[in-house]
Design a protein around this nucleic acid. Structure first.
Lengths: 346, 346
DNA sequence: ATCACGCAATAGAGCGCTCTCCCGGGGCGG
DNA sequence: CCGCCCCGGGAGAGCGCTCTATTGCGTGAT
């Protein structure tokens, strides 16, 4: 192999100055004579020097790395590990989260390490990773609100920010969406369209967001004189949306408006409705949630409640960064407002 | 804040042994008296010791981290950075790649750092990252085959493995698919079904995989007495599939069989066909490529050429690991065989 | 009883960097 | 003209770990 990589020492010798001076130039601190600065820069260029990050981290106690943790309950089978990862990324939602996070981190030279915490063992690995100082903090996206990871992180006093409010209070900052308001928008829209027999496909009810969306939908309808709302629980997947819609139709054939707790399930609902001879939106109007890429991909295009995921994710990253910088010390929660995007399905 | 984290020294004092002995226990090497071993373990438990990775990396010159680089040409706008990330993850293909890679890395305690290299600047960042020793090697997934990153990595003698063969030879290992064989399967299937007027929606022709799939399709048809095949070039996106199919139909209304170079475009093709009053597969048969999640999601479910992406990704990770371990020194390429999955669309 | 040998455990030298402390010299006020 | 301060630059002490060289000790052969 090639000889060992050049060190500060080498550059210093090459430039005829001390190690400390080179270090100052590299890190751009303190006043260094511009002439010498140029001298050093040239020496760096000549030697092809790249500062060893392990050595730097050892003294600064910072790695400029954050753990991007996708947390939740996966199956515990052997294949569970990558199955969980594949399943997570099958939902365009996470792609948007990653996009938002990366958009914030990159300009600041922070790097995300991808981790999955779908089992107790995996959670322990995340904690160890942080304790070993391999990452400065964690960005946690939970798929279940009873996820134990946030509490573990808080107990260990490890810096972390959550996407979505945890089910039981934990002293960690988080970003979230006003899910109730989103459901309210959907309900108002369906009512304004003239729908009279409304039903909803909820998300998994062990997820706080699902509960909120359901509660918001019910509240609004109740206020408009619809005390009873048929509900079918789904799992945020296409298949579960299909099953839920079929179930709903069996129980309430007269349904003329459906609110699905995410776009994937709304798509499933549309498929079932068409198969059963209902036109969307003429016979049955469908409103989704998220405004993910499939909202414009599927036919008819979905009317949906937009969640500014990228923005939320970027904000989450910013919160963590502020905590790490010490700029922000108090636990903070930021709640975003959804908005309705009207397309074809309702 | 809490007092500083316990170090080897602390554990050693607690256990009444030397630093070196604790180190041996932690790393599980050399013969250590079982009694002392137990003593040390207990001390570790009591102090809550977690070895500082920066310090370890400094001497071992290993980080147990690999860069997972998604490379290719993104737009260079301000929003380009996260737009690229979001776009990449909008394709379920990458979710599968990540799943396969993570499945291999995790059991080996290797961690992936997510990086995007869609511009010259971003590529330089990747190189610097590796040169600084922040990652031991790189796994590169290019979206374009004329991607300059592989050559840069090879020139810098940085360990890396590619997903897909680069357009011009580069001394780096890679995994790939026998794209021609896949296209051959699609062609044979369409012909066997009785299709007479075949056309194809290719991928972007600056991608080697697209060229191969097109060439394979053409070759097989030529061998069966179809020297001319209408082609519309797409960009692997839904929209481009829609546009390509519309174009094809305008030029050749009699088309009764279509091979799309990926599932997303096949889905778009199906939508256009339905909108234009063609039944799939009765009037026009459609074959996709990848066997991604949308192949079973969309209606009709797609007949498609299966690419064992997870397996390929895992193999890519394994190749890199072998290179890093020094177990494998020669540049290696592994080519996987595709298979046809028959569903409803053809 | 003496000595060579092997094995467990220690001492201590780095790995490459940052950062505090210190020094020397030039500018300026008294 | 002298003393003080400030600023550019250097020396050197670690950061926490690994690993080589070395010590100490018990064992078996002589």
């Amino acid at each position: 192999m090639s000889r060992r990589a050049p060190t500060l020492e080498d550059v210093a010798r090459e430039a005829g100055v001390s190690r400390a001076t080179v270090s100052r130039v590299v890190n751009g601190i303190r006043n260094v004579d511009p002439e010498i600065q140029e001298l050093v820069r040239r020496a760096i260029g000549r030697t092809g020097y790249a500062p060893n990050r392990a050595a730097r981290s050892l003294v600064t106690r910072r790695t400029e790395t954050v753990a991007l943790v996708v947390s939740g309950a996966g199956d515990t089978s052997d294949a569970g590990q990558n199955a969980f990862a594949a399943r997570v990324f099958a939902d365009p939602f996470f792609g948007r989260v990653v996009g938002g996070i990366v958009g914030f981190l990159r300009p600041r030279s922070l790097h995300p390490v991808l981790m999955f915490a779908e089992s107790a063992e995996a959670r322990e690995e995340v904690l160890t990773y942080l304790r070993q100082g391999r990452a400065d903090g964690a960005l946690v996206v939970s798929t279940h609100s009873d996820d134990p990871l946030p509490a573990l992180l808080a107990d260990a006093r490890l810096p972390a920010v959550l996407f979505a409010r945890p089910s039981r209070p934990v002293p960690l900052s988080y970003v979230d969406l006003a899910h109730r308001d989103g459901a309210h928008l959907a309900a108002e829209h369906l009512l304004a369209r003239g729908c009279r027999q409304l039903a909803t496909i909820s998300g998994p009810l062990d997820v706080a967001a699902s509960q909120e969306r359901l509660a918001g939908f019910r509240d609004t309808l109740a206020r408009h004189g619809h005390p009873y709302v048929p509900v079918a629980e789904g799992g945020f997947t296409l298949d579960s949306g299909i099953a839920a819609m079929a179930d709903l139709l069996d129980r309430h054939p007269g349904t003329d408006g459906v609110f699905a707790a995410n776009d994937l399930m709304a798509q499933g609902a549309c498929q079932v409705l068409r198969e059963r001879g209902r036109r969307v939106p003429e016979d049955v109007a469908v409103v989704g949630f998220d405004d993910s890429s499939i909202a414009v991909t599927c036919r008819p295009r979905l009317t949906t409640v937009r969640q500014p995921v990228e923005e939320m994710a970027a904000r989450m990253a910013r919160l963590l960064d502020e905590h790490l910088q010490g700029v922000r010390t108090e636990v903070t929660s930021v709640v975003f407002e959804p908005e309705l995007v009207v397309r074809e399905s309702a």
